[in-house]
Write a protein that binds this DNA or RNA. Structure first.
Lengths: 246, 246
DNA sequence: GCCTGTACCGTACGGTGTACGCCAACGGAA
DNA sequence: TTCCGTTGGCGTACACCGTACGGTACAGGC
């Protein structure tokens, strides 16, 4: 996403004030907010330059006076969304021990991914390194500071937890988008797919997959349950980190 | 991705033979292979209908005789790539205990993600459920069969490991794409970014992030190292699963 | 040899990001 | 006050995307 942008230019924009208005009152902040509103409502694909400009009531090309291009706008959207994570007094490091702290970190990240289903579509490639991203890194690392891990281990453990959250959140976002685009709920889709799948699979033999798949699909009424995957995986990972500390 | 496709139509196509040729020798298999070659070489974005058709030497719209649309072509690409995972005699369940088996599963998935960097871009949304996907599910579940887990736990553990692999592989693929698009290696980019970041961060105070970030970036010569994240995370997760078994 | 179904494909439409160039409004100098 | 250089705003145009639609020409049944 933030691929073809000059690092210096992009960083300066990210760390800038975003509020200095032009002749018609147009600001970077307004552009980013409009783009986020569109993406929240209809997905990242809906946040096109034309639609963002229309929403503000401004010509498409006027956006380019304040923002170098689409890639940088995406970076700004991401850093703005990350700003919602630990605003105010909710310091993750103040939530008991490392285990409760890590769980809190995971849950806040999970929340923000659900609130902005486009977030994970907009990341990838080099990290953005805006002010809120750095603030987040600092706040989350403090949870693991001084509990007996090396600096590299702190970074690795945090990365592991965040990778897990991102993975299940991406799964959840994918299913939500599929539901919105197709109009079929997860249960509808599974009820429509399961019989066809069963018919097409006759003749082949999948003993374990058949048994396990049936068991889990009966519980979830779907092919997967990201919320359960989030909780289960987090417990296992925290247990693994516990063993690392011993 | 496989959003707007009729499940029945898509499943029938996935489980079909793919080799029945038309008048000009055009087959589904040839279309899918050409698309995969393009995606391997230049990323998923390069696998457009026009370029796939050009590569085969056929009119763009001729593809639509054999494939309903782009979404279904993506599904076919994914299932074909998954077919490379456990071809032949490499049964993951035959690699010692559950721990070695799970590690083998993770490594094979990691390998295929590196070989086809577009794979994770093409998934998401409802699962594809082609023959190779089901075969993969069966082979991977057998690793966890009969070691004392419930059916649901088997599914959850497998999902956890695969989510981890997908997460770090996605990170790796993102960095690789950024490198290809920008022409800058990870080291180049970090050397260009770090000083700007340091300058722009002066005035703010990030004690832990500064210390840890500097430590890990000096080791990785970058902002992240997916290969290390893969190995570290896998060990922690396997330890957590071990505790689950106790 | 003829007819019909269908594989193939040329054209066109509505969408995307953005390069380019024009116009008007503003700030400062004379 | 007048003038002019700078700059914010934006209309047009281009190259690309997926694909709906309709025309053409070939293969197989009679």
């Amino acid at each position: 996403m933030s691929a073809k942008s000059d690092p210096g230019r992009s960083l300066a924009l990210l760390w800038g004030s975003h509020t200095r208005p032009g002749r018609s009152g147009l600001t970077v902040r307004a552009i980013v907010d409009a783009a986020i509103e569109l993406a929240d409502a209809e997905g990242l694909d809906a946040a096109t330059m034309r639609r963002v400009a229309d929403k503000i009531g401004v010509g498409t090309m006027s956006l380019y006076t304040h923002v170098p291009g689409k890639a940088e706008l995406n970076d700004l959207m991401v850093d703005t969304a990350l700003g919602e994570l630990y605003t105010g007094v909710d310091d993750p490091a103040g939530h008991g021990g490392w285990r409760e702290g890590l769980r809190y970190v995971a849950e806040r990240n999970w929340d923000v991914c659900l609130r902005h289903l486009w977030l994970l579509d907009a990341t990838g490639g080099r990290p953005t390194l805006g002010p809120n991203a750095v603030l987040k890194y600092e706040a989350e690392l403090r949870v693991l500071d001084g509990i007996g891990l090396t600096d590299l281990q702190m970074d690795s453990v945090l990365t592991l937890v965040l990778t897990h959250v991102e993975g299940v959140a991406r799964s959840h976002a994918g299913l939500a988008r599929a539901q919105r685009d197709s109009g079929l709920t997860e249960q509808d889709w599974w009820r429509a797919t399961a019989p066809v799948l069963e018919r097409v699979m006759t003749g082949h033999d999948f003993p374990v997959a058949g048994r396990v798949g049936e068991a889990s699909s009966q519980v979830y009424q779907a092919s997967a349950d990201p919320a359960h995957a989030f909780a289960f995986g987090l417990d296992v990972i925290l247990d693994g980190v516990q063993r690392l500390l011993d």
